[in-house]
Computed example of a mutant assay.
Amino acid sequence: MYVVRDIFHLKFGHYRDAKALMDDIMQKGLLKDMKQPRVLTDFTGDAYRLILEASFDTLDEYEKSLTGNLSQNDWQQWYMKFKEHVERSYREILKQVM
Rank of each mutant, 00 (worst) to 15 (best):
M26Q: 02
D74Y: 07
E87Q: 11
M22D: 03
L59N: 08
L52C: 04
S89W: 14
S55W: 12
M1Y: 01
D60Y: 09
K95Q: 14
K32D: 13
G68H: 04
I51N: 06
K35D: 15
T67L: 07
Y48T: 11
D6L: 12
H85L: 02
L21A: 05
Y90Q: 07
Y15N: 02
Q96R: 11
H9E: 15
D24R: 12
F56G: 03
Y15P: 01
S65D: 02
K19I: 00
S65N: 05
D74W: 06
P37I: 11
L50I: 15
M22S: 07
Q36S: 13
M80E: 15
L66H: 01
Q36W: 04
R88F: 09
I7S: 07
D23G: 07
E92N: 04
S55C: 13
Q72A: 11
I51W: 05
E92V: 02
I7G: 10
V39S: 00
M98R: 14
G13V: 01
D74N: 06
D57V: 10
K83I: 14
G68N: 09
K83H: 09
F12I: 15
R5M: 14
K35N: 14
Q96N: 05
K19N: 06
I51V: 15
D6W: 14
R38I: 09
S65R: 05
E92F: 03
E92S: 03
M80Y: 10
Y79V: 00
V39G: 04
Q27L: 13
E63S: 05
Q72T: 14
D23K: 08
M80F: 11
Y62E: 04
G68S: 08
D74V: 06
Q36K: 10
V86Y: 08
T67P: 03
T58I: 04
S89K: 11
S55N: 15
M22Q: 04
Q36H: 13
L50Y: 07
Y79F: 09
L52W: 06
P37W: 13
L94Q: 06
E92M: 06
R49S: 09
F82Y: 15
V97Y: 03
R38Q: 13
Y62V: 02
A20N: 09
Q76Y: 03
P37G: 11
G45L: 06
D33Q: 09
Y79P: 00
D46C: 05
H14W: 12
S71P: 00
R5N: 11
K28Q: 08
V86H: 12
Y48R: 12
Y62T: 00
M98C: 10
S89F: 15
A47F: 15
L59E: 08
M1N: 08
D46L: 07
R91C: 01
K19A: 08
Q36I: 03
E61M: 06
D33A: 09
A47K: 15
F8Y: 15
K28M: 05
R5I: 01
R91P: 00
R88D: 15
H85R: 10
E87K: 10
D6G: 14
L66T: 01
K11S: 06
E61Q: 06
D24N: 13
E92P: 06
R91S: 02
A54W: 02
Q96I: 14
K28F: 01
Q77H: 06
H85C: 02
K11R: 15
Y79S: 00
T58F: 01
A20W: 01
M98Q: 14
V39C: 03
F56W: 02
I93R: 03
N73Y: 08
L31I: 01
M26A: 09
F43P: 05
L66Q: 07
Q36G: 10
K95A: 05
